[in-house]
């Protein structure tokens, strides 16, 4: 693959992150960093704590211990809207769309950070307000064309096909102008064609200079797309490295396949 300029700057650093639910350690002393412009995959068996990790990074649940840094800013104790403001956006494992909104309206919500919510300009319809609205709508148009949803912009987002609903979610996340995009199992339940199309979309997004942190089960996707892989199991980091390293690593094979009995 001819890749864009991969950098060594860490865009996201997770250090010693832990979270327990009751007695279960969902995430246990986890540390890794995501480099700028990479597509970084998180893989691991079901219940390994991948989604919890995403919720910790985006401030939906607070960690028990540890630290999350975005570039050099500590974002551990920030609310999710503040984290979004820093330039981290996400999609959800179970698609979360706004049931009463069209595709266009849904993506327009993502422009909140651009338009803001100041009341006085809205009530007076000032020039700056109208300009902001225009720019926001233009950006939505660009994004919808980019993800290939412009033709269905006036349809209700929740009535689209599963694959297109995921696209809406990604478009909404892109509208916040993120530097880092977190995708939580974006291709789960998709057929091979939809998966392929979404993979192309991720590559296109990445080529726009947006770093992607992706949770996935589809090993084909992970191997094709990712520059770096972190494998977690029982909330702990098992291994990390490039696709070649991961595939051959005995610990990964063990986690997925069970222990290989050498004597047998």
């Amino acid at each position: 693959m001819n890749k864009k300029n991969l950098t060594d700057t860490a865009i996201l650093t997770v250090a010693g992150l832990s979270k327990s639910f009751g007695g279960v350690k969902a995430v246990n002393d986890l540390s890794f960093s995501v480099k700028k412009n990479h597509i970084h995959a998180i893989i691991g068996p079901n219940g390994a704590g991948k989604s919890t990790l995403f919720n910790l990074i985006t401030g939906i649940i607070p960690p028990d211990e540890g630290e999350v840094r975005f570039f050099t800013t500590d974002i551990t104790s920030l609310r999710s809207d503040q984290i979004a403001k820093h330039g981290v956006s996400r999609t959800f494992q179970n698609i979360r769309l706004f049931p009463d909104m069209t595709v266009f309206e849904t993506v327009l919500i993502g422009t909140y950070l651009l338009t803001g919510a100041k009341l006085a300009p809205a009530l007076l319809r000032t020039k700056a307000f109208r300009e902001n609205e225009r720019v926001a709508k233009q950006r939505v148009e660009e994004i919808l064309k980019f993800v290939g949803l412009w033709d269905v912009r006036d349809e209700y987002a929740a009535q689209l096909s599963y694959g297109n609903q995921r696209r809406v979610e990604i478009a909404r996340a892109l509208a916040t102008q993120p530097q880092l995009l977190l995708l939580d199992e974006p291709t789960a339940g998709m057929n091979p064609k939809e998966t392929k199309e979404l993979m192309d979309l991720f590559t296109a997004v990445n080529n726009e200079g947006i770093t992607i942190l992706i949770i996935a089960h589809d090993m084909n996707l992970v191997n094709t797309l990712s520059d770096h892989i972190t494998v977690i199991n029982f909330g702990e980091k098992l291994v990390e490295g490039t696709a070649d390293v991961i595939q051959k690593h005995p610990a990964v094979i063990e986690a997925y396949m069970g222990k290989v009995k050498v004597d047998a």
């Binding site: 985006t58 809207d81 979004a84 979360r96 706004f98 327009l108 919500i109 009341l119 809205a122 609205e133």
Partner: peptide, 21 residues
């Protein structure tokens, strides 16, 4: 306005709204 839209987003899905900033 941006404010009104953010309110409808909160009505429809608080978590998603908050994640959009």
């Amino acid at each position: 306005s941006g404010f009104g839209r953010s309110c409808t987003a909160i009505r429809d899905d608080e978590l998603a709204a908050q994640s959009m900033g």
